[in-house]
Structures are given as structure tokens and as C-alpha cells.
Computed example of a mutant assay.
Amino acid sequence: MADQTRSRLSHQEVWQRWKENKDADARNTLIELYLPLVDYVSSRMAAGLPKNVTKDDLVSNGSMGLIDAIEKFDYRRGLQFETYASWRIRGAIIDGLRQGDWVPRSVRDKAKKMEDAYAVLEQKLLRSASDDEICAYLNISEKDFQQMLQEVAVAAVFSLEDPIRDEESETRLTLLVDDKAINPESKVHETYLKDSLKIGIEKLTAKERIVVSLFYYEDLSLSEIAEVMSLSPSRISQLHSKAILRLRGALSKHREQLLYNG
């Protein structure tokens, strides 16, 4: 306990030297201290990405996010830096992936078709749409449906990281995970968005809800979730993809309502 207290005090001193004195050595110490966080976040994200995306690329982009977090973090507020930095690191990695445009246009189009199918059917049925119902709506076979799920799985990795509105940086996932992330100026929009997320989550199947909970709340990787649920990683990936498509469908309806009411 005493060691932990001394460690916290020493970290506080380093933050103070950096923020108040702009001590470059203190800044470098902080980067070295929290660099393992970049490796951790990169490893989790790499699990669901194509093989052509290397972990080194993720670490490189994530390191820029860590540096940005160290530059902007206010240690005097008493917040936990690891939580703040994780979001910055993840955001920097996602920005790098977007700039690389590694998801083909055809895959994005398929994801949008499936998202729209879930939105339309679940609004009509007022329950979760089954795989058979989605197949019938899209006029495709079960085999083609499974293939589409495999293809859009990579696009679902950061689908909840998209901005709520094009001109803003706040994402859907910040609302799903952290209530403190609310921007007072758009609180009304975000209240409706949370309601949409709640409805969307309620429409997920039991297994999909478990995957979402373990991935976004318990911070487990898809491989770890596979072990917990005694399912194959590919099956977990499919469940994650379907859950995200359902949630995006619910959120797309929310966006339409905002535009209509605006």
C-alpha cells in the first residue's frame, strides 16, 4: 500500500514538472511510463482487423494518440489518465485506419444494406429480426448472408466510433460507455441517442448482448470472449457484427428523426 502511495506521488510530481515547467525530460518519462497502454490497446484492436493491417501500424498511430493525450491531460482534475489516454490512443488508431481506407467500398455498401435491413425489419416487427428474415428481405441465401457477415466484420470494428454528427468529434460509443462524456450544448440530441441505443440493445439477442457487454464494458478481446462463451472466434465475430449492424440501424433511425425535426 505504501509503495502504491509513493508511486502515485512520484507520478504526480512528474506531471507537475511537465505541465507547470514544460520539462522535456518529464514529458519523455510520461511517454515511457504509459507506452505499454499503447501496446495493450493496439493488441485488442488488432484481433479483429485484416492481416494486411500490421500491429506496428496500430502502435505507430496509437503512440501519436498517447503523446496527444499527455499534451492535453489536466492532472489537477483528479481524473485517471489511463482511461483518458485509452480513448485518445484508440481514436488515433482509428483515424489512421480511416486515412488508409482499408475497408473496400463494396464492403461498406454491403454493411449499409444489412444495417438498413435490420433497421426496417426491426422497426416493423418491434423485435429482433432473425437471420432468415434478413435473408428474405435482402433476397439472398443463408450462405451469402454468412459470407456478407464475414466481410463486414472488419468494418464493424470501429463502427460505433463514427461521429454522432459529421461536424463533431464525439462518438456514439462515448455515450454507450461513459455518461460523463455528454456535451451540454447537444444534450437533447444525445438524450434521444441514448434512448435509441437502449432500444437497440434491447433488441439484440441474448448472445449478442453478452458479446457487446464483454467487448465494450469488460474490455475483453474477441478471442477472450470466444473462450468465455465456448464459441469459435469466427462465431463471436459474427455475433459482434450483427449486434453492431442492429445498433447502427437503430441509430440511423435516430439520425433521420433529428434531421426531420431539425
Rank of each mutant, 00 (worst) to 15 (best):
V157C: 01
A155N: 04
I94Q: 07
E161Q: 06
D101I: 06
D195M: 12
I182E: 15
K180Y: 08
E170Q: 14
T171P: 03
Q146H: 07
A129T: 03
N139T: 12
D166P: 00
D132G: 03
R108F: 09
W102H: 12
P163N: 11
I93A: 02
S60Q: 14
A181N: 07
T191C: 09
L97Y: 01
D56C: 05
Y192P: 03
T191G: 04
S159P: 00
L138F: 00
E151M: 08
I89S: 09
V120Q: 15
I67P: 01
V53N: 04
D195N: 13
N183A: 10
D178G: 03
L176W: 06
V53E: 07
D166F: 00
R90P: 02
A85V: 02
S141N: 05
V154M: 12
V120F: 11
A111V: 03
L79N: 04
R127M: 11
A69R: 07
A156T: 11
E133L: 01
E82K: 09
I93H: 01
G100W: 07
T54N: 08
K55M: 13
A117R: 02
G65T: 02
V107N: 08
P104D: 09
D57W: 10
R108M: 10
L138C: 01
K112T: 08
I182L: 14
D144L: 12
G96N: 05
L121V: 12
D179W: 02
D56P: 01
K194C: 11
K187Y: 02
